[in-house]
Design a protein around this nucleic acid. Sequence first.
DNA 1: CGCCGAGTTGAACTGAATCAAGAAACGTGG
DNA 2: CCACGTTTCTTGATTCAGTTCAACTCGGCG
Lengths: 187, 187
Amino acid sequence: MKQLLESFGEMAHLSEEAETALMSIITKKNFKKKELLLSEGKICDQIYFVEKGIARAFYYKNGKELTFWLADENEFVGAFTSFFSRTPSNKYIETLEDSTLWIFDYHKLEALYSESKELERMGRLFVSYGLSILEKKFDDFHALTALERYTLLVNKHPRILQTVSLGIIASYLGISQETLSRIRNQA
Amino acid sequence: MKQLLESFGEMAHLSEEAETALMSIITKKNFKKKELLLSEGKICDQIYFVEKGIARAFYYKNGKELTFWLADENEFVGAFTSFFSRTPSNKYIETLEDSTLWIFDYHKLEALYSESKELERMGRLFVSYGLSILEKKFDDFHALTALERYTLLVNKHPRILQTVSLGIIASYLGISQETLSRIRNQA
DNA sequence: CGCCGAGTTGAACTGAATCAAGAAACGTGG
DNA sequence: CCACGTTTCTTGATTCAGTTCAACTCGGCG
C-alpha cells in the first residue's frame, strides 16, 4: 500500500482528495500461483499492480508461449491496447507465484476520471508515465543484445532469476532456453 | 490538415470547440531534407505529425547510428519519455526528405489541457492511443523475425523502402545492411 | 522407488554478422 | 553539363553466435 502510493507519487502529484478517491476504487486481492488473470479473446478490463509476487503476460506464436512482459513487485502488468481500445486481446496474463495484486478496473477508472478535472489529469499523467516505461522497454529491446538484456535483468530483478523458470525467462529475453542456460553458466 | 483531423478522430472524439482550441496551438512548418529537429542532451519540447515527407528518430550506440523509429506520412514522431518527464533526451530526430510537419509544443499543450476538463480528457486519450501504438511496435519487435518485419514494412510503407537509404532501414529492422540487401534481392 | 519436469551439456547445423572489394548512383563544383 | 569524389548498394568469402535435436542429470513428489 505504501509502495503503491509511492509509485503513484512518481507518476502524478495527488491531492489528498484525489488519493482518497483513487484508493476507493481499487481493490487488493490474493492469487495462487499460475492463476489466469486474462485469456485470449477477452477484453482486458483490469490492470494489475504487483504488491507481492510475480506476474507475466504472454501469447502464443506457432503454438509456443512467448512471454513478453514480466512484472516484479511494484510494477504494473496489463494488455494496454485491449484495455484502452476495448478490443479483444490475444494475450494471457497469469501469476507465477502466490501473489498479492491491486486491481484497477477500466469502468471504475473511467467513472473516476469523469468526476473531476483533477482526476482526469491524474489519468493522463498515469498513461504518460506508462508510455515512458514502454518506450524504455522498446529501446532496450532494440538496442541491446541478449546478453546485455540478461545482465540488466540480473541487476534489476535478481529475484526473477531465482523464481521464474528458465524457459519463460529465455522467451522474455528472446533467446532459446539452452542458450540462456549456457549464458548463465558462465559468462 | 484533413488527415491530421482524421487521425485525431481515431484517437478521441472532439467537440467543435475542442478541435478549434487544439488547432489554434499547433503550427505547420516546412523542413528541408536532413534537418535536425532534436539532438542529444536537449529536452524534447515538440512532438511532430508528418503531413508530408518522412522523419526518423535515432541515437548512437558504440558510435553507430541506430534508427528505432520511422514516421511515414500521417504518423507521429517524438522522444516521448523526454517529452513527458522533461528530462534530457539521448535521441536525435531528423527529416529524411523535404517534409511538412505539424508541431505540438509541450507548453502549449499543457496550457491547453489546463483550460478545461474536456481538453484534459482529450490529452489523456491521445496518450492512451500513443501507448497502444507503442505496445504494438514492441510486440512486433519481440515476436517477429527480421524477415517478417521487413514484409510488414513493405506492405504498410512501400514508400519508405523506395526513399530511405538501406542502412537506415536495416538498423530499424535490427539487421545488417548486407543482410537486408540480400533479403530484398530476393526472398 | 520410480517418474516427471526442469535444467544442463554436447554436436551438428544454420542464419546472420563481419570483412572486403567492387559497382552504381548521386551531387557538387568547375 | 561533364568529371570527379563521395556515398550507397551489392556480392562474395569467412567466421561466429545461437538454434535445434538429442541425450543425460538432478531433485522433488506421488
